[in-house]
């Protein structure tokens, strides 16, 4: 211990040690985001379609999750769920290995549930923002409800939802710093452990702040890029006669290889998705 009030150098020198736990942080964030988005989309569809009973249940769920702090939710998941499982074991004589469930699972569930409530509203607003005419046009050419949802409505809604979903992901990254409550050692938890050794608490929190901030900036940039990528380009040049000729004679494979500088990017994406190229 050097006796300095604030060890400026340490803020930076311990960053690599903290970064060793970045993968855990990211795994938590990504897993809970994926889980939260899928559940959120499901809830949004239930609410829009006004599915009986489930609709009421969804409203109740969203209200409950949005009205309670994440920290409390994490504690409930970590302490409550095992208790419930043990109770089930006791009552039914089943043999669920409660102790074998890693804290990671509880953290992902709690953070995911938390996100789903927010994402549900985002998806709902985005799906409702798609013009009714798009549904009708799809229906009128004979597409089924599912086809029109998957190929027309969701891609359009996604453009609208993306900025908010990005925010939700960034919140998830920061939210993982609470996962220590489920005994998961991620970056923040490791910071606490490190500073427990040298009592440099303040320094480690500054280091963590820098790391989280940097990650957030990075993902904001990625998000901007993706947003641009999936949005309809501002302008497209007219097809030249020779391009048109090659388009006419195009076979899917050759066409896909050509890449999308002629503004036909969307079609290429399909080919990949449908395994046609």
């Amino acid at each position: 211990m050097t006796g300095k009030i604030f060890d400026f150098k340490l803020v930076f020198t311990q960053i690599p040690d903290l970064l060793k736990y970045l993968p855990v942080t990211m795994e938590l964030a990504i897993a809970s985001t994926v889980f939260g988005m899928l559940l959120g989309l499901l809830i949004a569809i239930i609410k829009i379609k006004k599915v009986k009973v489930l609709d009421k249940l969804a409203t109740f769920y969203v209200s409950l999750v949005r009205g309670t702090p994440v920290l409390v939710q994490l504690y409930i998941a970590y302490f409550g769920v095992p208790m419930l499982l043990k109770y089930i074991n006791q009552q039914t004589g089943s043999d669920l290995k409660v102790a074998a469930i890693p804290g990671f699972v509880y953290a992902v569930l709690a953070l995911g549930f938390n996100q789903s409530a927010f994402d549900a509203e985002v998806f709902r607003a985005a799906l409702l923002s798609v013009d009714k005419g798009q549904h009708e046009a799809a229906a009128a050419i004979g597409m089924t409800g599912w086809q029109s949802l998957r190929r027309i409505i969701i891609p359009e809604a996604l453009s609208v939802a993306l900025p908010s979903l990005g925010n939700s992901f960034i919140n998830a990254i920061k939210g993982t710093s609470l996962a220590f409550t489920c005994a998961v050692v991620e970056m923040t938890a490791e910071g606490k452990i490190l500073s427990g050794r040298n009592y440099r608490y303040f320094e480690v929190y500054v280091s963590l702040a820098i790391i989280y901030w940097a990650i957030t900036i990075l993902f904001e940039k990625i998000l901007k890029f993706v947003e641009k990528k999936i949005s309809v380009p501002e302008q497209v040049e007219q097809i030249r006669p020779e391009e048109l000729e090659s388009l006419r004679n195009q076979k899917s494979r050759a066409y896909a290889a050509k890449k999308n500088h002629n503004g036909l990017g969307g079609e290429l994406a399909w080919q990949k998705n449908r395994g046609l190229s």
Partner: peptide, 30 residues
């Protein structure tokens, strides 16, 4: 719906698809 086709007052082209993709959509999916 397959035997009828509808032209709408407000066109209702699929916003995130090119003109070509708009015309291709039904041929592929339906």
């Amino acid at each position: 719906r397959q035997r009828t086709g509808m032209v709408f007052q407000r066109f209702n082209l699929f916003q995130k698809k090119t003109a070509l993709e708009n015309v291709m959509e039904g041929l592929i999916t339906v």
